[in-house]
């Protein structure tokens, strides 16, 4: 049975709305634990406010953050799936309908990069990336709206035969540069290797990884733990006014590279907007996370 455009439209719009009105359950648990361990009184109070804000938004159908960001979707299509209508257009239509009808209404955040004119729509928006999954009959869709609070601090650099130390030092430099500016504690995604475009994509996929999902690569697992400990020693704390927890997680991914090794570092803020669903070939829709 083919997947129809109406399902794509409804699912992607629902993913976006859900990402705005709640925080992921795993993220809430991490924040709650961080708040319990926090020794700075201001940061401890900030963690309580964060949980209250997130819970109130979920309970009352409010926006956690008024900056609804730029809508982005990652779509992974099983090669056994058939569609009976447009996919990219369905995602655009879903976003357009949501922007016109959502309660509460949303601010215009889609911005022309040169004229700075704002709208609910714009060229190539929503930003959608596509990939394939061999031999399955489902489509996985991740929605991760992206705003300036963290987006402006993300960075990438090409190294030549870097050591692990070079890469770790670079990640810390990027976090230090951001300092108190993003809404801390952040999740840090690191993409190492591949090509310029691929490293950025690796970093983005890494930042979206659910908390607690095991890192099977021992080299990367060591980097993740060391970097998380190091960032939390910096002391920026919740909302950047000082404290023990500046990052909730550091997630690292790599691809084979060349002598040159691009390293990309991206962030999600404490509300960690990400939702995901799987549309099966028989039309069933399954929530993956968020």
């Amino acid at each position: 049975m083919p997947i129809d455009s109406a399902t794509i439209k409804a699912v992607t719009a629902a993913l976006y709305e859900r990402s705005l009105k709640a925080i992921p359950a795993d993220t809430r648990a991490v924040l709650a634990r961080a708040g319990e361990r926090e020794t700075d009184p201001t940061a401890r109070r900030t963690f309580r406010l964060m949980l209250d804000s997130a819970d109130t938004a979920a309970r009352e159908g409010q926006l956690v953050c008024s900056d609804i960001g730029l809508p982005t979707y990652s779509v992974k299509v099983g090669t056994r799936v058939r569609f009976n209508g447009p996919v990219r257009q369905a995602i655009q239509d879903g976003f357009a309908e949501l922007a016109a009808t959502m309660n509460p209404p949303i601010l215009k955040m889609v911005t022309h990069p040169l004229t700075h004119e704002r709208s609910h729509a714009g060229k190539d928006v929503p930003i959608v990336s596509f990939d394939l999954i061999d031999d399955v009959d489902y489509v996985d869709i991740v929605c991760a709206p992206k705003a300036m609070g963290t987006g402006r601090w993300e960075a990438m650099e090409a190294f030549v035969y870097p050591t692990v130390e070079d890469v770790e030092r670079y990640v810390l430099d990027v976090v230090l540069r951001a300092g108190s500016q993003p809404c801390l504690p952040i999740v840090v995604g690191v993409g190492i290797g591949g090509t310029f475009d691929h490293a950025a994509r690796l970093a983005k996929e890494a930042v979206l990884r659910p908390h607690g999902e095991p890192q099977p690569d021992a080299l990367l697992a060591g980097m993740e733990q060391r970097l998380l400990d190091a960032i939390n020693q910096m002391g920026f704390g919740a909302m950047g006014t000082g404290g023990d927890c500046s990052a909730m997680a550091v997630n690292v991914a790599y691809s084979a590279s060349h002598g040159f090794v691009p390293v990309a570092v991206c962030f999600n803020c404490w509300i960690n907007r990400r939702t995901a669903a799987r549309i099966h070939g028989d039309g069933r829709v399954e929530t993956l996370y968020g």
Binding site: D52, S53, A54, A57
Partner: peptide
């Protein structure tokens, strides 16, 4: 003053 980012439900 630093306000809570992501604090819209409380601040509103």
């Amino acid at each position: 003053l630093s306000f809570l980012g992501g604090g819209s439900p409380l601040l509103s």
